[in-house]
Design a protein around this nucleic acid. Sequence first.
DNA 1: CTTTTTACAATACATTTGTATTAAAAAAGG
DNA 2: CCTTTTTTAATACAAATGTATTGTAAAAAG
Lengths: 206, 206
Amino acid sequence: MPKQIDHEKRREQIAQATWRVISERGMEGATVRNIAAEAGLSLGALRHYFSTQDELLAYSMKLVKERVTARIREILSLDLPPREKFIRTILELVPMNRENMVEMEVWFAFTAYFRHKPGRFDMQDDGVYLGLQKLMDYAEQNGLLPASIDKELETEKLYALVDGLALHAYMQPQRLDGPRLERVLIHHLSGLMAAEKQSDAPDRRS
Amino acid sequence: MPKQIDHEKRREQIAQATWRVISERGMEGATVRNIAAEAGLSLGALRHYFSTQDELLAYSMKLVKERVTARIREILSLDLPPREKFIRTILELVPMNRENMVEMEVWFAFTAYFRHKPGRFDMQDDGVYLGLQKLMDYAEQNGLLPASIDKELETEKLYALVDGLALHAYMQPQRLDGPRLERVLIHHLSGLMAAEKQSDAPDRRS
DNA sequence: CTTTTTACAATACATTTGTATTAAAAAAGG
DNA sequence: CCTTTTTTAATACAAATGTATTGTAAAAAG
């Protein structure tokens, strides 16, 4: 038989080809033929790794989530001051480069696609809300948050802010580029951690 | 000839059928046949009002925008205290009922669909950012905003918050229902208008 | 070396899709 | 009443798509 192939690796390559196709041509362009061509495979070859299109799409979606959570887990494992860790984790939730942009793009596409599937493959949640709740707990336990705030509402606001910014960065990348995204988020987090005087960052007394 | 038909009215009916189909079956289900069936027409009949599918979709998208902007314009025309007008306008940007939810749903679907079209029908912008800028100007001119805030950043934040909440209300309607949406937005706007002490609404001294 | 198993390619097939064509029915205009 | 024009229906057709089948080559297993 021909050179033994690492199935899992091939599946990941195909999933990445899927991401590229969706990013460039939308969900409408994510046909098995387009994906096979992007991956440099024939239809028959593709079918050896995914027997149905929805299985391929579901796998590709799952892989996006794994990649993102792995990156975040890595940041959380770094040895940083709590404040830096808190901020950097949140910044990671927003697309700062082309790669993250594609991830978010395909995540949206997958979500919209699987939402209306009869045999639902299991409506995947991105887990960001749960993660932000834990992150806010972490911030509170490390004294980053003033006691006066309504933590639950602030978590909801932060969640909406992050996803809203992500969405806008995707829809209007020329207006909302990386540096501006960072400015907006830092501004919000500074206000959040400042309690009274939300006007600016806390440690600014020059 | 058969009973003269108001073409514009028919086109609106068809567009509304399109919304329903997209809401229930996603963009994948928005075939000309499904839409014709939902509208109670034959393929040939549909084709008398829209000669191509993309023309139908583009019209349906335009109609969504017109409906939403009309509703907002109506609120702006009401005789309300500036503070109420400011808040109610922003609350209108978020889906509080089934109808608004469908509008947002199809707007997202259309946006994703037309994004990857060779002969782009004209990437429609929802105009929310521009509207919010004007609304913030209005708020400032009516003394609702403290001078200490960074108006541009706060506009960007508000924009992201609104769209993020809308997205989440769509994705997790059970968790983020109407009352909760309102609580979160009011909380944010209160903090925004409060300047120092962002902890709660301003006029609360009992 | 022989056999068997694996990766891949080519092709086939039934459905669905957008669009086009043709025709009929129905009422407005004269 | 008769012609004309508009609405609608029925059918056609080519292209695209998901999936299945068949075949082939290559290397692992013996």
